[in-house]
C-alpha cells in the first residue's frame, strides 16, 4: 500500500515537474492524433462535447481557453462546481496529458471565428 501511494506521489510530482514545458512540439500531428484518441476514449467527448464543442463542461475550441500550463494543472487535478471533472494526474503520464493538450490546442485553431 505504501509503495503504491508513493507511486502516486511520484507521478503527481512528476506531473508538476512537466507542467511548465511541453516535452514535444504541441503542433506535432502524431501527438495530436494520440491526444484525440484518448480524448474520445476517456469521456472527454461526452463531457466536453464532440470535438470539444462543449457540454455541461466547458467548450474547448473557444479562443479564450486556458494557456497550456494551466490546462496541465486542471487536467491533473480536476475541478468541481455544479459538475465534476475527476483528476487525471494519477491516471495519465505527463506525456499523455500533454498529448491531450496538443489535441485541445488543435481544436482552437480549427474553431470557426466568433460572430
Amino acid at each position: 500500500m505504501r509503495l503504491r501511494n508513493l507511486g502516486f506521489v511520484l507521478l503527481f510530482v512528476a506531473g508538476f515537474a512537466h507542467a511548465d514545458t511541453a516535452p514535444f512540439d504541441l503542433s506535432d500531428a502524431e501527438h495530436i492524433k494520440a491526444g484525440h484518441k484518448r480524448f474520445n476514449k476517456t469521456c472527454a467527448a461526452y463531457c466536453h462535447g464532440f470535438q470539444g464543442s462543449g457540454g455541461r463542461a466547458p467548450a474547448l475550441n473557444a479562443p479564450d481557453g486556458l494557456p497550456p500550463e494551466q490546462m496541465f494543472t486542471v487536467i491533473t487535478e480536476g475541478r468541481r462546481g455544479a459538475e465534476v471533472m475527476p483528476p487525471w494526474g494519477t491516471s495519465f503520464t505527463p506525456e499523455q496529458i500533454w498529448e491531450l493538450i496538443a489535441y485541445i490546442q488543435s481544436l482552437r485553431s480549427t474553431a470557426p471565428a466568433a460572430p
Partner: peptide
C-alpha cells in the same frame, strides 16, 4: 484508470 470508462468506441 479508475476514472475511465470502457466504452469500446473510437468516436461518438
Amino acid at each position: 484508470p479508475i476514472n475511465a470508462l470502457t466504452l469500446g468506441l473510437e468516436e461518438i
